[in-house]
Design a protein around this nucleic acid. Structure first.
Lengths: 343, 343
DNA sequence: TTTTTTTACGCAAACCTTTGTGCAAACAAA
DNA sequence: TTTGTTTGCACAAAGGTTTGCGTAAAAAAA
């Protein structure tokens, strides 16, 4: 059943020489004669010899494998990040193991352990929204293994991270709505503990403050990222006496869901209510009206995270100083936020 | 920089015993005294000892890692398949390496090699649409390594595969349109060499034949899966004297793009032209009108592919007989295909 | 007391590669 | 002929774990 891997020993036996000589011939070691080298090389090519990677791993105590944990694989944002990671890693000679935490702290610990069992050289992670206890990650750092945060992070760990300027993105979004004449801008925020949700809320508030608009707590709703959660938020916002004329959402799921609900209730977008969200799906072009979004550089985030890992693993000096890379989100203006029709 | 892994030798030294004894104590070997076993177990726990996975890999010549190659990571269908694979694999104690071929035959070969370098126990693959030469995969089979196709396949290789009943799905879709009174049903097909595209076209044709409708070649367009490709197809179909009253598309991308174009040209969906496509994105609920789709069981496909791998790797008998698992696609009727408005 | 059995553990090989050291043989120089 | 250098290759260790076999001491049986 399991096939027999070709080894140096096999080659050596066929050539009536030693393992050492075969190994050195393949590596172009100076001490091997030209004639011997060609003999070995020929046989190796003919038999399609490749050194046993597991033996190499053991020898170098390196697996050339990166572990990656995302909350969800089938979310467009994370799969774009994964693409960025995969391409950068493969280009650098690394393979990538992807695992999903399904937003569960417990599963996260499990997959961390599973990855460690497989002897990864480093871990890239966007922690689950549930995760409060970071000891499983601290352990990794303590062992000296490179750990890189992306998208989400904990400030308690002194590690490299690549984040998006959520604050700035939210501010841009809010300012854009203000410039378009919106007066009562609501915000449907994400989970209260999530670092990027906090930043986006913060950016929203500060944009309003800068324009000397009083923050109305009724216009801020926290959403748990389920359909029901979104429905509750919309219900709450639309039952206000003084209804919002714009809604800025934490992510695309909330945006899509709430637009659907708002349209069903008979409101027109954008004339009655403007919409804007953080989103990445290419699908924003296909919904009506097309959604204005703060676009997160997901692919780039994956690239940068991998680069940070490579930097750290290749760092020869005694101590590596953790870095934080901050990427800029980009406002993409489409129809949903333009009160006055553009021509 | 790189941390020192704790080894059996370290434990043995601290306990003034041999490596063998420590190993056996940890494994519960009968020949170890109770007192010694507890001593070892305690120290191991205290020092958080884990056997070096690389050494184990070498010893067992198993890495407990599955390689997976998809054409694109950030396509909802494939990322759902990946979720299915990942969950099933992790549950069975395997880790998963994901790679993307980016629909390039050349890149596909590269990542196959990269994965082999990492010593995977098996390979799950949906070949790129470009791939015609399958020798790189045949090599894997020849080595005795389990290879499983999913979504796409080559009939030339005697390996297990998990496919969708594309023929049946396309037939259902076409019949559904016929039942709704559509007379001139067009089909925008995928790349001509792709196994599932061929099957879907086949199902479309047979459904028409079964209803004694002559197949009009003008109503069949082949699309290369780019925006321009879709535009060409739509241009061709809409410039016919006898225009189609329904369009059945190979996948969701074509469906979304062509709906956009058709709407821009002033046609109403579904009253002027009905739409139906093979699609998986949850986003079909958010576009207007909601798209009727043949839903592919992506997650299940990932599960089944992994199960086939596990079956094969755990097969003790001399010869493993390749299996083909065929999953059923499911027609989800929404607004885009209902000519007469349902109440 | 001697022989046999049991208990508890250690040695060394195997998995496969790389590499420092050593050692012959060949050759050049003295 | 002897010494010194180069060439071409082999031995063995290292990396960490498992495991068949061997063995000492203790316990049991004779």
């Amino acid at each position: 059943m399991s096939y027999k891997q070709l080894t140096l020993k096999d080659l050596a036996k066929q050539l009536n020489t030693s393992i050492t000589t075969v190994s050195r011939a393949l590596k172009g070691h100076y001490s091997i004669s030209e004639s011997m080298r060609t003999k070995v090389l020929e046989l190796a090519k003919q038999l399609d010899f490749h050194p046993n990677p597991m033996a190499l791993n053991l020898l170098k105590s390196r697996s050339f494998t990166i572990g990656v944990i995302v909350p969800e694989i089938a979310h467009h944002f994370y799969s774009m990040v994964m693409e960025g990671i995969e391409e950068t890693a493969v280009a650098a000679g690394y393979n990538v193991m992807f695992c999903a935490s399904k937003e569960s702290s417990e599963k996260e610990e499990d997959v961390v352990n599973a990855l460690l069992q497989s002897r990864i050289d480093g871990l890239l992670i966007a922690p689950s929204k549930e995760t409060i206890n970071y000891t499983h990650l601290q352990n990794i750092v303590n062992k000296g293994m490179p750990l890189i945060f992306f998208d989400r992070h904990s400030a308690d760990l002194r590690v490299s991270k690549v984040l998006v300027n959520d604050y700035e993105g939210a501010m841009q979004a809010t300012n854009h709505l203000l410039e378009n004449g919106c007066k009562r801008i609501a915000h449907i925020a994400g989970p209260k503990k999530l670092s990027n949700s906090i930043q986006r809320l913060h950016g929203y508030k500060d944009a309003l403050k800068n324009s000397r608009i009083k923050i109305d707590k009724d216009l801020i709703a926290h959403c748990n990222l389920t359909k029901e959660g979104v429905a509750d938020c919309i219900e709450k916002l639309l039952s206000l006496k003084n209804k919002p004329d714009a809604i800025f959402t934490y992510n695309s799921f909330i945006a899509f869901e709430s637009m659907l609900l708002v349209k069903r209730k008979g409101y027109k977008i954008p004339s009655d209510i403007c919409f804007i969200g953080f989103a990445n799906e290419p699908v924003i072009s296909y919904i009506e009206p097309q959604l204005t979004t703060v676009l997160l550089p997901a692919y780039e985030m994956g690239q940068e995270a991998t680069k940070l890992f490579l930097e750290q693993i290749n760092c020869k000096t005694e101590k590596y100083e953790p870095k934080t890379v901050t990427l800029q989100a980009k406002l993409i203006v489409k129809e949903s936020s333009l009160k006055k029709k553009a021509k």
